[in-house]
């Protein structure tokens, strides 16, 4: 008994820490660009690679651009793109999953084949292939990530809904005169919600990782867009003179992904 108690305690403490972290980053990303006076694209060629603490709170990059302003814009970009990707993947994925479990038969099979096709390739490879159509553009990146991720929601939802639909309490509800609307809303969604929440939080982290990784290797968003991965690439040649400058975007990625993973709660494998 005591064991379960401590477990749920650390469990919720972990989630609270994740929520706090993400909350702070979201504030930085939404308010930051408005509050910070500096323009992220404004170059100050007299002050390249300025150290933190002077005129610029976090210093400047090799063109003398304010790192604080750039990090704030990059946060808004990454969080925004992650939210967009996850919603674009989760909503159709979940609805199709429930529909496939409910309908069964040919529709279920066809959707299963489509999801198998997408899973045939590792997700990043698929995104890379799409990114090749328009390197540096926002659209293929977003489409590729959403396309790779909806399958997860579809599979999890379909499997969960299938098990739930075959459970006696759903059969009993049918016999007691409840319709499909009630069963989906009151019996299936509440069981599904915690699973979906975990998956969404985790996939936000995955999206942030993928966006920065692709930009870092030069296939995602390109400079001068303020993005963590491309900022790291740009500052990489200066790691000897200004090691903390390179580590700043890296630290932002770490904090964001850590926040989402903590928010996801369980140690998901």
């Amino acid at each position: 008994m005591t064991k379960t108690k401590t477990m749920t305690f650390t469990f919720s403490r972990r989630r609270a820490a994740g929520a706090a972290l993400i909350g702070a980053l979201a504030l930085f990303g939404t308010l930051g660009p408005a509050v910070i006076a500096a323009d992220p694209a404004q170059q100050d060629l007299l002050a390249p690679l300025a150290p933190p603490g002077g005129d610029y709170l976090l210093g400047t990059d090799h063109y003398g651009r304010s790192l604080l302003a750039r990090l704030a814009h990059a946060t808004r970009l990454s969080l925004g793109l992650a939210v967009l990707t996850v919603l674009s993947a989760a909503i159709p994925g979940t609805l199709l999953g429930i529909a496939a479990a409910w309908a069964g038969g040919i529709a279920d099979r066809a959707l299963g084949i489509v999801s198998d096709m997408i899973l045939a390739l590792p997700g990043l490879l698929l995104v890379l292939l799409l990114a090749a159509f328009a390197p540096g553009q926002f659209l293929p990146l977003y489409l590729g990530l959403a396309l790779a991720q909806w399958v997860e929601y579809f599979r999890v939802t379909r499997a969960t809904a299938r098990t739930l639909l075959s459970r006696p309490h759903v059969e009993a509800s049918r016999l007691l005169g409840f319709g499909p609307g009630y069963i989906a809303r009151r019996l299936i969604l509440p069981e599904l919600a915690p699973v979906l929440a975990t998956l969404m939080a985790f996939n936000m982290g995955t999206a942030v990782l993928a966006i920065s990784t692709l930009s870092f290797i030069g296939v995602g968003l390109h400079p001068p867009t303020a993005e963590w991965g491309s900022m790291a690439t740009e500052l990489l040649p200066y790691y000897f003179e200004a090691p903390f400058h390179v580590l700043m975007p890296a630290a932002m990625i770490l904090l964001t992904v850590l926040g989402f993973h903590l928010l996801a709660g369980e140690d998901r494998s």
């Binding site: 459970r167 006696p168 309490h169 009993a172 509800s173 009151r186 019996l187 509440p190 069981e191």
Partner: peptide, 8 residues
């Protein structure tokens, strides 16, 4: 137990 929705 399985004849009742677990969260209700």
């Amino acid at each position: 137990p399985s004849a009742f929705a677990p969260h209700q």
